[in-house]
Write a protein that binds this DNA or RNA. Structure first.
Lengths: 246, 246
DNA sequence: AGCTCATGTGAACGACCTTTACATGAGCCG
DNA sequence: CGGCTCATGTAAAGGTCGTTCACATGAGCT
């Protein structure tokens, strides 16, 4: 019954020592379980073994805790996108696709963060630190787009990198939101979200003039058939980025 | 203080007469104001001038009301997409772009519905009627994609229509969620969400092999420079769907 | 006229968010 | 070492919500 609380208290004394962190962790777990909407401040406090009022010493209110989690999420998001981009190695297009996959992987593997970041209703511009973190994450995509834009084959016009970045972001976010999340809006699909996004991005890049050859979405990823950073090939390849023509 | 309630009662008698509808309307207004998360069952009841327990005669719980609104939203969504598609008139590509714009317009003009449909955490598969409505809406996009896929120029492989539909949906949803909503995740953009999506779709279609000429996003929309349904032109046009090359 | 049942009321319960006054004890200063 | 201070925690209380229950009302049928 209540010996639990006593014991907890006995274990750690009157002061918790690391409550802020414990609350963040507890909240993260709760959000992963029940979504940002179902997460409750009181529950996080309970889970940390403190009274319901204690969290207010560390967060102005429930929203600030949520906002903190979102910020942390954007930081990890940036780290993962950054690692995936790997400064464009081994070649820009390969790295670019890896970023898209990293986006989906993050949405899938860190549902709590993703939820807090994009689906919790936290206004990004409420917290300057949050906004900054969000911007840093986007800047990875932006930088990648910049490099990609510089590679447009001669003869084709160069698209604005910012626009490309926004396009890629919207595709990734659209696929992740609609098809790649755990509980909510899952639909039956003829292909995996990863394949769906990969095909989408490849078709898009082809529309920009990049000579993209078909890639059956899972083959050996390494050997770039073109000398890296030197676009070759004719305009329109016979195959497409999707499985089989016809 | 409380004469208000008395007067309400005097006006309409003990029975409301149309409470279900009144609740739906009230909830819609509240969601538009404060989002699906901030909307409260009690508030809706107050707004309709009834006690807090009355709504339970019409909805099992708060979630069912939300789900009903989402369903209604999908119905209106379908109607608008359907009208925009207009069975592919005057030509398939024009109609297709109109569907994309209708998607954004709906997200912008009916934030309450959009919120309930996509951001409220209502599981689509909870309510069969909701799921059916959602599917009907998607089928508009699917049908349009089907027609478009049938138009792929000779020599280019034909993409699966379902995949195209999912791609278009994810682009539209991504742009709408990230950039085209009222309060939440608004970012500064170099172009309007409409232009962003239009360019995205055009580039994508070009990637599929459609001969898309540049369209400065706002010119006279009517005259199709190609005989309708007879793709012409060379492979790669000199301009792009974005503003200016270079 | 009388019955019935859908529809609405008020009271009550438990959970949550948040504030306030008070308690505790860790760290510092003499 | 003794005492002070202030960050950190607690209990209690007020307000709102969601939800249920027993009871009230009256619209519509017989």
């Amino acid at each position: 019954m209540s010996w639990r609380k006593e014991q907890r208290r006995a274990e750690r004394g009157y002061h918790h020592g690391n409550l802020k962190e414990a609350l963040l962790q507890a909240a993260l777990g709760l959000i992963a379980e029940k979504g940002a909407a179902g997460f409750t401040f009181a529950d996080a406090a309970r889970m940390a073994g403190v009274s319901a009022a204690a969290p207010y010493r560390h967060f102005r209110d429930r929203d600030e805790l949520l906002s903190s989690i979102a910020q942390r999420g954007f930081e990890q998001f940036e780290a993962r996108l950054s690692a995936a981009w790997d400064d464009g190695r081994p070649d820009t297009v390969t790295a670019f696709e890896r970023v898209g996959k990293a986006y989906l992987a993050f949405a899938r593997e860190e549902p709590a963060f993703y939820n807090a970041m994009f689906e919790s209703g936290v206004p990004v511009d409420a917290n300057p630190a949050l906004q900054a973190a969000s911007e840093r994450a986007f800047n990875i995509i932006r930088a990648a787009a910049e490099r990609l834009a510089a590679l447009t084959p001669p003869g084709t016009p160069r698209p604005p990198a910012m626009m490309m970045a926004l396009h890629i972001w919207s595709m990734s976010h659209g696929v992740a939101s609609l098809f790649s999340r755990g509980d909510a809006a899952r639909r039956k699909l003829p292909m995996s979200p990863d394949e769906l996004l990969e095909a989408e991005v490849l078709i898009y890049l082809r529309g920009l003039g990049f000579p993209i050859d078909r890639r059956p979405a899972g083959k050996s990823a390494e050997p770039p058939p073109v000398p890296p950073e030197a676009p070759s090939g004719s305009g329109v390849p016979p195959g497409g980025p999707w499985g089989k023509p016809k």
